[in-house]
Design a binder for these strands. Structure first.
Lengths: 221, 221
DNA sequence: CAAGCTATCAAGTGATCTATTGAATAGTCA
DNA sequence: TGACTATTCAATAGATCACTTGATAGCTTG
């Protein structure tokens, strides 16, 4: 029969990955990496922490098997390790919203007033009919790293000046990093203030990709 | 625009749930609860740790929204909190097997020599044809708390003496708690030693239930 | 090959986490 | 009511973790 020592070793090994999710800083890094691979420097800036600290957390994530690293000339680019890493992160995030009132509250606090959303099924149907314009309001690099098939890129901070690019007679659907990302909310508010009909996609790029929906580049990592 | 403080609060709140997965003891408790709700006392015995320690970990899990508690006379029964908790735990477990060589190694070490397995699809087809006998080799209470529709219960430690209950002319499929559970492996070895044709189901009860397959009691929590 | 980045390492400190022990509480049963 | 059981609380020591600072190593460019 199998003994205690072996069982302990097994759970110990799994807990090594579990520890990766125990720090808010690391979760933020995971959230950023879910959009696109990035260098240490970019991640440090985006998460507003010191380079050394970022590097250490990334090494912890690497040891936990959650990210891959690749040297690129003078810098090092980190990326989420396979779909498993994304799966776990999204599962944890969704569970925390569902079960922890505090997360829900913090999310509402962060996102501001809710704007009307559209689900995946309906969007697909409307896209098929050519009925809506789909706009990716994330930064350029993230769009470049991957986006929903058929979306056009207008980063949030250019939205106001590029309003004319959007046909006035069609509804606009904006999406961004995911349900906790404020960009799409803000985009919809701006669009509505400009007299357009607009909604946000209730999910973001990582969820879309993980669901194996039509994407650019095609195919899932 | 949304600020750093709000974002920090959000990730902090999610990390509260993440911390639940950072300790091997807690993971073991989650793994046990994935089979059936249990009292503190039962959990302490099953995981071979002190009552006080078990209680504390359970409280940590409770604070993280991973388990529910219910008073039952003199004792307190804990259960996994909804399908979200199970989803996250299974996602983490699977990711750790996929990405951490050490987990895979520890699992092989614990399980002993691998025995031939059968997948979900094939089992369903064979069950439909009435071609196999499906045996649940977990302890009675776990079978009682929920099992695959059509399975019969023969706890592993009764298997040898109850061999006669199994028709000799049909293949036997054994399943237990999941891919890390040694019971089904051991059952298949015993059955083969007794001259039967036997395989193990490559998943366990929690995976089956989460996939919304025919179960008793019907319907998922 | 030297200068200038980017990333990592090493060490130190304060904070947090874990398991243990012994005491306290809630519920049951005679 | 009082004894008993199951669970939780409180206090503690040891271990681990997080973040900072200052030094080091790898790569590219002139």
């Amino acid at each position: 029969m199998s003994g205690r020592a072996e069982k302990d070793a097994l759970f110990e090994a799994i807990a090594l990955m579990g520890k990766a999710f125990a720090s808010p800083r690391r979760l933020e890094l995971l959230d950023l990496l879910a959009q696109a691979p990035r260098t240490v420097d970019e991640l440090a800036k985006a998460s507003e922490q010191s380079m050394a600290n970022t590097s250490q957390h990334l090494q912890a994530l690497h040891a936990a098997g959650m990210v891959t690293r690749a040297r690129e000339g003078t810098s090092v680019r980190y990326a989420l390790a396979g779909h498993e890493a994304l799966t776990v992160w999204l599962a944890l995030r969704d569970a925390s919203v569902a079960r922890l009132a505090e997360v829900e509250r913090a999310a509402r606090e962060y996102l501001g007033e809710d704007v009307e959303a559209i689900g995946r099924e309906e969007l697909i149907e409307r896209l098929r009919r050519g009925d809506v314009v789909l706009v990716d309001v994330r930064p350029d690099e993230e769009f470049a790293a991957g986006h929903i098939d058929g979306a056009r890129s207008i980063p949030l901070d250019e939205l106001e000046e590029r309003l004319a690019e959007l046909p006035a007679d069609r509804e606009v659907v904006a999406y961004c990093r995911g349900p906790f990302c404020a960009y799409a909310h803000e985009a919809v508010r701006q669009l509505q203030a400009a007299g357009r009909t607009a909604r946000r996609l209730e999910e973001g790029w990582p969820e879309w990709r993980l669901a194996d929906q039509p994407s650019v580049p095609a195919g899932v990592a």
